[in-house]
Structure formats: C-alpha cells, structure tokens
C-alpha cells in the first residue's frame, strides 16, 4: 500500500476551483517530483496534504487523501496536529520568510522535537545541532544561537530542512525548496536534502518547476497543468518517452549550459488563470497538436503500463 494516496482530489477556495481531480500515489522511500508552471496547483497540493487549506480559506471538496491508512480529509484538527511536523513535514518555498524573524533559529528547530518527541530543552538542542552538522553546517553550535536575518538564504533553507527532519517524519513535502536561493547553491541544497532522505529511507514529495531537478533527484514524477494531472510516470520514462505534449514542452525547456536555469518561459502562450480555465483539455489553446475534440472533452488519465497521460492524442503522437 502506498504511504500517501490522493484519489480524485478537488480543492475549492471561495468560488475558485484551483485543483480538479488530482490523483497520485507516493510510496515509502520514494522521491516523487511534482512539476508544473507557476499557478498549476503545486503548493495547493502540498497544503491539501498538510491539512492547511483552511488557513487560506480553502477546502478539499471532493476525493480522498489517505496517509498510511489514515483518511486525512475527515481527520479532526487535534489529530492532524499530531501528524504535522511529526509524520509529515513541510519545507516551504521561501526560506527568507518561513522562519520566525525574532526567535533564535536553533530554538525554532528545538521546538519540533520538544513538541513531538517530548525531548527536554537540552536534549532537543543537542539533537538539533547534530542534525545541523549532518546538513553540513559549519560551527553548528554558534549558528544554533543566531537569528534568521544573520544567515544567508542557503543557510536558512538548511535550517528549515533541519526543522523538517527534527521529529523523524515519514514524509517530507518540499515546496520548491531552492527557487528563492542563489543559482549556484540550488543543486547543492537539493543534493544534501536528497542524500538525507535516502539515508533515512523517508518519502519525499519534491515540488519544483524545474525538470532538471526532477532528473537530478526523483524516482517518479507527476506533471500538473492548470490544476489537473497531465501525466505521471517514472523519471526514466518521462524523459525517454514523454506522452503529454505539455511534458514534451517542459523537457524541451530544460536550461542547457549557459542558459538561465529554472525558467519555463520557453513554452509558447500563457498559463490560463484559475478564474477562466479553458474547456476540454486545459492545455489545448497552447498545444501544437490540438484537434477539435481537445477543446470539448476532458481527457482522462489512461492507465498504461509505463506511465499515464491525460491526452486525447497519445496514440497518434506516439506513432507520429
């Protein structure tokens, strides 16, 4: 049984429907990439699993999210709290803003193991410093007493990673953990994180808009487009035989040497707004292969042996 399983999950925020029928599984010890352009619903997927949608006025209106046999959609808040930070940890998009600026950084890491593992202040501090050392933070004991603004972005993100690891979670959700960082250290931070996750046998949901990161770190990948799953497949397959035209475009846009990395601006057209999603296949206005059916009927994720794509034309394209 999968560790985490989303089945046909739809999310509503007010009158908007930013996620529509998201399904995917994440196994133990697996690193699953979630890719898509800005606004495709990656962060909302993370928030749905964390049970934090109410904070932004959203809720899961359809479908099931099951974590280790626990139905998360109907889980009472008090039980959810024992899961958050303890069994499912979040690494957020922007390390600059995700730490409390007036509390010592070490105390923020200690807080997690004190809360969930019942450690004393002294034990929690020792544990945090050890974690920091594993994250290759030099002079961890000193940095433990620093405030967030005294550290660089890369250092801060390592602290957030330490915070995520502090209570030995089963699953870590990393939402674009390096997007806000200097390009030169992005790959390094990803590598440190992936190494630790593999070492400890954790599951990782790695959200990114960079297919390069997927290639570097992931076992499998789910491609999101405009709040729906466009395709999911193993990493080797997705690069060898991408089935969805959108996935092809994403791969085409991986920055080569000397190009500005991380940018997906290369796909022609613009991401549709959540207020105004196109009918049928939401990618059809930007798709070079679009046919009449694409504008009228929603393509379903078809079950295939190696991978699945939500496209009317997979057969045609595969042979064309």
């Amino acid at each position: 049984m999968a560790l985490l399983s989303l089945d046909n999950v739809s999310v509503t925020i007010g009158r908007l429907h930013p996620l529509d029928g998201i399904s995917f599984d994440l196994d133990r010890k697996e690193i699953l990439g979630i890719v898509g352009e800005s606004g495709s619903g990656k962060s909302l997927t993370a928030l749905s699993v964390m049970g934090l949608l109410p904070l932004i006025g959203g809720k899961v209106t359809k479908g099931a999210i099951v974590f280790d046999g626990i139905d998360l959609v109907s889980l009472p808040e008090t039980d959810y709290r024992r899961l958050r930070g303890k069994r499912i940890a979040l690494i957020s998009q922007n390390p600059m803003t995700s730490l409390d600026p007036i509390i010592r950084i070490g105390a923020q890491i200690d807080q997690v193991s004190q809360l969930h593992l019942g450690l004393s202040a002294v034990a929690a501090q020792a544990r945090s410093i050890e974690l920091m050392q594993q994250l290759r933070i030099p002079d961890a004991a000193t940095i433990h007493g620093n405030y967030p603004h005294q550290l660089s972005g890369g250092m801060k993100q390592r602290m957030v990673i330490a915070m995520a690891l502090a209570a030995d979670p089963d699953l870590i959700i990393a939402d674009e953990p390096t997007t806000a960082l200097d390009v030169t250290i992005q790959a390094q931070i990803i590598q440190i994180m992936v190494d630790l996750v593999r070492e400890r046998g954790l599951a990782l949901m790695l959200i990114t808009h960079d297919m390069g990161v997927v290639a570097q770190a992931c076992d499998r990948v789910v491609v999101l487009y405009a709040g729906r799953v466009a395709e999911q497949a193993g990493v080797a397959d997705i690069f060898a035989t991408p089935k969805h035209p959108y996935t092809r475009e994403l791969i085409r846009c991986i920055p080569r040497h000397g190009q500005a990395p991380g940018s997906l601006k290369g796909i022609p057209g613009t991401v549709p707004s959540v207020m105004d999603y196109p009918s049928g296949c939401r990618f059809h206005p930007r798709c070079a292969h679009a046919q009449a059916i694409c504008g009228t009927e929603v393509p379903l994720l078809e079950q295939k042996t190696s991978g699945r794509a939500a496209c009317h034309l997979t057969e045609v394209l595969a042979h064309g």
């Binding site: 964390m50 934090l52 904070l55 709290r81 024992r82 899961l83 958050r84 930070g85 303890k86 940890a89 979040l90 957020s92 998009q93 922007n94 803003t97 995700s98 730490l99 409390d100 600026p101 807080q111 997690v112 809360l115 969930h116 957030v160 915070m163």
Partner: peptide
C-alpha cells in the same frame, strides 16, 4: 498572514 505562521502550523503547533 505571513509565511512563517504557515510554517508554525506545519510544525504542528496549536
């Protein structure tokens, strides 16, 4: 509404 508050919730604090 700040990001760090979202993270505090994500840590499981009440």
């Amino acid at each position: 509404r700040r990001d760090f508050v979202m993270m505090l919730h994500a840590k499981g604090l009440s």
